[in-house]
Design a protein around this nucleic acid. Structure first.
Lengths: 219, 219
DNA sequence: TAGATTGTTAATCGATTAACAATC
DNA sequence: TAGATTGTTAATCGATTAACAATC
């Protein structure tokens, strides 16, 4: 694992993921070198912001030249620990869990769904894509073989904490929670939430409250 | 629409959504009055943060007493414009789009999926839940009848901007983008992104970099 | 060399938190 | 009244941006 500075702002990490996507695209396009200004334009981020974000991890560019695309891509991939395969287990084989299990964005990515679990007996044992839906109560034991290190929670709110507890017991190191509720995990397990309702509600706030082009001109 | 202060921090708006969820729960539990301290405990937010967030919109509490749960719920619902039905149209009838169209979290919510679109002729005309999959090229015309005001984009990255353009042409006031790419909309249309890969990549960064309980004790 | 661009230090900006008067 | 809790002002914290020396 590359050395990691003690404190990197979370927004910087999130942007690093954006830079990675951009760099992969640049490689595809055959671009060899890129400046922070060019990359910033593509990513919707200022050039200085990019340089600051990168500076937490070292010096990657050459003054007057810019960044070697391949090299920066390789280094950021290491830093984000995307140079190895991550094994994802999903708890909740409903609509969303099923969709994520079959998510095409995972092919050619470091993420691989290795197991999907549910507590509903009518679902357990059924096949989903190339997986068998397993009994969530056996998750900790079964994960010894599956070796999942990332858990995704796609159960209803009232089952989310139990799902989280089972994932932690199973030894996952990170949890992505889609259930619309607050869950707790130990401090050495990282947790992020994707909250559809929250996103929609914030969008609703802005409806008819954003200045139209004319209003903007008027001040 | 309730009067809106010119500038409310975006994090505050996002937390208001959390407070709303909490207040709905409190109503269910029959709780009549709640203090910022109590609510903060439930929401994982400090009491002063809650009071500050609310202060952007007015005074809702009584010193020494707290907040009337029903009243605060009603006021925040108005402020977030959740006191009316919002009509959602989805572009992209793949796994994710289909899952969102059938999302159970939308029942008894102000959100209603009124249309789902795709560009794939083998999908167009097929039924999905109680909807017919429609041709995305006719979205602007068809939305005159559907009256969708929120768009969700669940197409592959390379089709996302086109989807956004069609949604804007159709007159939606807000867009929730699930495609892993940056899209642009006019300034009077609000936009939020849900980026699964980005969330997972940030999680990966933290794997084995978070202090375990013992390390924390050691400092 | 001159022009371009990096990495970093200092200034600014915005959000969170602390302190506290007001008041139920 | 005394205790509890609000709403707000001021202080702090953290992230972004500006300025600029270093250097390819």
């Amino acid at each position: 694992m590359p050395e990691s500075p003690s404190k990197v702002p979370e927004p910087s990490l999130s942007r690093l993921s954006v830079y990675l996507r951009c760099l992969r695209q640049l490689v595809k396009e055959g671009v060899r070198t890129v400046s922070s200004a060019k990359m910033g334009e593509r990513c919707g981020v200022s050039a200085v912001q990019i340089r600051k974000d990168l500076s937490y991890f070292g010096e990657f560019g050459r003054p007057g030249v810019g960044y070697d695309v391949q090299h920066l891509l390789a280094r950021l991939t290491e830093i984000m620990q995307l140079d190895r395969q991550h094994r994802v287990v999903i708890v909740g084989a409903g609509n969303l869990g099923s969709a994520l299990a079959g998510y095409s964005g995972f092919v050619l990515s470091p993420f691989q769904v290795v197991g999907i679990f549910d507590n509903n007996f009518s679902k357990i044992g059924r096949r989903l894509w190339d997986l068998e839906i397993l009994d969530v109560h056996h998750l900790p034991e079964l994960n010894r073989e599956l070796r999942g290190n990332i858990g995704m929670i796609t159960v209803p709110a009232d089952a989310a904490q139990e799902a989280a507890d089972l994932l932690v017991k199973a030894g996952v190191r990170a949890v992505l929670n889609f259930a619309p509720t607050i869950i707790e995990v130990p401090p050495d397990v990282s947790l992020r939430n994707v909250d559809l309702t929250r996103e929609l509600e914030v969008l609703c706030y802005y409806i008819d409250r954003l200045p139209s082009p004319e209003e903007k001109a008027a001040g």
